[in-house]
Simulated scan of single mutants.
Amino acid sequence: MEFVMDMLVQRFGPMGPLFAVGGLGFLLILLTLPFLLQKKSDPMDKFRDSVKASKSGGKNGPALRIGGKHDKLEKYSNFLEPQNEEEYSAIRMKLIRAGYRGKNAVRTFHFAQFALGIGLLILGVIYTVVNNGMGAEVTTRSMVLSTLIPGFVGYYAPKYWVTKRIQERQEQIVNGFPDSLDMMLVCVEAGQSMDHSIARVSKEIRAGYPALADEYAMVSHEIKAGKDKTTVLKDMGERAGVSDVSNFVTVLIQSAAFGTSVAEALRVYASEMRDKRVMRAEEKANTLPTKMTLATMMLTVPPLLIILLGPSIYNIVETLGKMSL
């Protein structure tokens, strides 16, 4: 390996190893892209062609929105979307929990990873070339790090963003869930049905908790569309990814199955959610002194030492200076 590195440096200069790595990576990309971009035959192609033909023939035929003619990433779907059904479902559910419900969300997510990774990798190469051109001493290790680290950052940045979005939405759902249950209990006790109560609550809490309002609104729309209520509630619990919502869904399903009062079940569960929220607040309050200890020591102890020991140290230094004279 050292012989190869020395030969590249002697032949191409200090940037020889970087040129070799870049050329090899570019060659691998060129060899791989034809296989990745090769579009497999789709059973729906025939149906799409018939729909396009009906559109071009006039307004007599039905027009369905399939794929979308403005979707420029559709022809790269085999490359940008996972072909494994389980993997596709997992990333799809993750994006739904982050609030990205579009049908092209998975494709856009992988395109963002690919584009940011390649783009920042190219910027890292440009930075290394410019830094070397300015006469700075660049080692092989620094060249590799300055080239690869931006690429890794660009590739994992969308994944980090989606994870943070999921955490924010779940925290918003957890915080607003007890209030939504209280509103739902008021609506049910006022004589409204459960379906109308969910729709009303989704409108009332949108200003404070839009993520939870979206979940309730989707439940309301799916029930109005004729979907089975049990399936709709289970889908809501899976989309939210919060244990409180999943338990609430179980309570409603069991209440409907055994014929018990929905209002009574809501009253008991809402009380439990309020107690749980108080316990979470107390837990955060109890951990606050521990978190503040380090900051308190860093911001308080040094000034205190300076105030207490500063004059004594100054007098000692001044006395030693006089004695040396």
Rank of each mutant, 00 (worst) to 15 (best):
N60G: 11
S271D: 15
V188E: 08
Q113P: 00
G135F: 02
E215A: 03
I66S: 05
G68Q: 04
V4C: 09
D244N: 07
I96Y: 11
M134C: 10
F111K: 09
F3D: 14
D235Q: 13
E74Y: 06
R165Y: 09
S220W: 06
L123Q: 06
E318S: 14
G259V: 01
G67W: 07
M292V: 05
D42N: 04
S312K: 13
S243A: 14
I126S: 06
L24I: 09
A225V: 06
L121N: 11
T230Q: 15
T290I: 12
V9N: 10
S243N: 12
T32L: 10
E74I: 01
Q172D: 15
G124V: 00
A90M: 13
N84T: 00
A157I: 06
Y127D: 15
N286G: 12
V201E: 02
L37I: 06
L308R: 05
S312Y: 12
H196V: 12
L95P: 09
K276V: 05
L288H: 01
A20I: 00
P178W: 00
S220F: 05
T128K: 02
G117H: 01
L31H: 02
D42R: 04
S271C: 04
D214T: 06
T260D: 15
S197E: 03
Q38R: 14
Q170H: 04
E86M: 11
L120I: 00
K39W: 01
A20P: 07
R206V: 09
D49C: 04
Y127S: 14
A265F: 09
K103Q: 14
T108N: 14
L233T: 07
E264A: 11
A105P: 12
E137S: 12
V125H: 04
Y156K: 03
P210E: 01
V317Q: 10
S220E: 04
Y314S: 11
L299S: 08
A63H: 08
V153P: 02
A263D: 02
A217D: 15
W161S: 10
N84Q: 07
L8H: 04
R65V: 08
M183H: 10
N78V: 03
G191Q: 01
L120E: 03
M183I: 10
L28T: 06
Q172V: 05
S146F: 11
V268A: 09
D275Y: 10
A20W: 03
A136D: 14
K322C: 05
E168A: 15
Y160M: 14
S193P: 06
T128F: 07
E204W: 07
G22Q: 07
Q192H: 07
G208R: 09
L30C: 04
Y100E: 15
V245Q: 11
V21G: 07
L325K: 15
G226E: 03
R101F: 13
V138I: 12
